[in-house]
Computed example of a mutant assay.
Amino acid sequence: MSGARKGGTAAPWLLMLPALVIVLVFFGIPMAYMLRMSFNLHIDQRLYVPGFTFEHYGELFSNPLFTGAIWTTVKLALTASFATVVIGYGFALLVWLKPAGWRLLFVGLALCPLLISEIAIIFGWWMFFPKNGLMSYALLSAGLITDKVSLMYTEFAAFVGLVYITLPYCFFILLSVMDGIDRRVLEASADLGAGPFKTFREVLLPMTRTGLAVAFSQSFIWTIGTYATPSALGPDTLWTMGFLIQDQMLGKNNWPMASAFSMILVLGVAVMMAATRSLMSKREAFHV
């Protein structure tokens, strides 16, 4: 009996062992190397000099340029994640309530951004935001503006690009959570006299709060580490952590500082994941 119990306890770990080995080899070892690199010295124009110093971490939080980039990255990631969750929730709710015949169409529409590379998406926005782009032409034709306008190389363009990239992931997370809800609870709420808004606020929203937390955290993780979209669509003054990591590593040949920036990003992602996990019960975590 004791042997069977031990075998049942070890079975999940044996099933996860191949995945754990892959994570350790391809993520754990490089992460440990990057952590060690962040404490090395940077002298002259050499990439790094073996040593041990906390100087790079101290500079991260004392240099106004670096602290400004950290704040800009977090602010942009938070606002983009909030917008993504709001839009994704509305889209997922629409698909969930639609008949099955419409579902395939909307799911295919949500899959489209995942079938295109990030570079191709950026080129698409380059044709949409400029002064002679599609958006300016549409607004001018509709009579909403009297002269052509350009939103290219603005923080708004970077914001829209980030929302577009992360929206499909948010949508599928929320849709999977809604699919686990019995629609009859909405009918029961209506039978008890609750209006649509009250049903949403007191029935549907509490039942999907875990999905909202997971969707927000996933969107935040994607947006805080994205480099290409903010750099290509935003202004030259939009210095994010991804941009500074690239600049420190390739422009200034300062690998320890780039590694320190990367470790701060990893720490931020870990904090977000821990915060999301703390909001979930074991049953909710298993369902999501």
Rank of each mutant, 00 (worst) to 15 (best):
P206D: 11
Y227C: 10
L205P: 03
F197Y: 14
P196H: 15
G242H: 05
K198I: 14
A190I: 13
V203Y: 06
G251T: 05
M207G: 02
G211I: 10
R201L: 11
A228F: 01
G195L: 12
K252M: 11
R183W: 05
D182C: 04
A215W: 06
G225I: 01
G193C: 06
T240D: 05
Q246G: 03
L205V: 05
L192S: 08
L186F: 11
Q246D: 13
T210K: 00
D191Q: 05
L186D: 05
S231C: 03
S189M: 08
T223G: 01
T229L: 07
F220V: 01
Q218T: 12
D191N: 07
G242Q: 09
F200P: 08
V185I: 15
R183I: 05
Q246S: 10
P230L: 04
T237Q: 08
G242V: 08
D191A: 13
I224S: 01
G251D: 07
S217T: 15
A213K: 00
M249S: 10
S219K: 03
G211E: 03
Q218Y: 13
Q218A: 09
T237A: 14
M249D: 00
T226M: 14
D191C: 11
T210P: 00
L212T: 06
P206I: 04
T240Q: 00
P196C: 08
I245M: 15
M241V: 15
G195Q: 11
G211R: 04
D182L: 03
F243Q: 02
D182R: 09
K198T: 15
P230K: 03
Q248D: 12
A232C: 10
G180K: 12
A213L: 07
T229F: 12
L186I: 11
P206T: 02
A232T: 09
F216K: 04
G225W: 01
A215I: 04
T226R: 06
W239N: 06
A194S: 10
F220R: 03
A228Y: 00
F220A: 05
K252Y: 09
L205Q: 06
L250V: 12
G242L: 04
P235R: 12
Q246K: 13
T199R: 06
S217H: 00
V214C: 14
W222T: 07
T240C: 09
A190D: 05
P235K: 12
K198G: 08
A232E: 13
A190Y: 10
I181V: 08
S231P: 01
A232G: 10
F243W: 13
L204P: 06
P196S: 14
F200C: 02
T223M: 10
L192T: 03
L238W: 04
M249R: 11
V185K: 03
L186Q: 10
G242N: 07
R184E: 15
T229A: 14
Y227I: 03
T229V: 15
T237D: 13
A190C: 08
V185H: 07
L186G: 08
I181K: 13
L244M: 14
S217R: 00
F200L: 10
L205W: 11
L238A: 01
M241T: 00
F197R: 08
K252A: 10
R183H: 04
F200V: 05
F220T: 01
I224G: 01
L250W: 14
Q218F: 15
A190Q: 07
K198Y: 05
F197E: 11
T199L: 05
L212M: 10
T210Y: 01
K198N: 14
T208N: 14
M207L: 15
G251K: 06
D236W: 07
G225L: 04
T240G: 08
M249W: 01
I245F: 13
V185Q: 09
T199G: 14
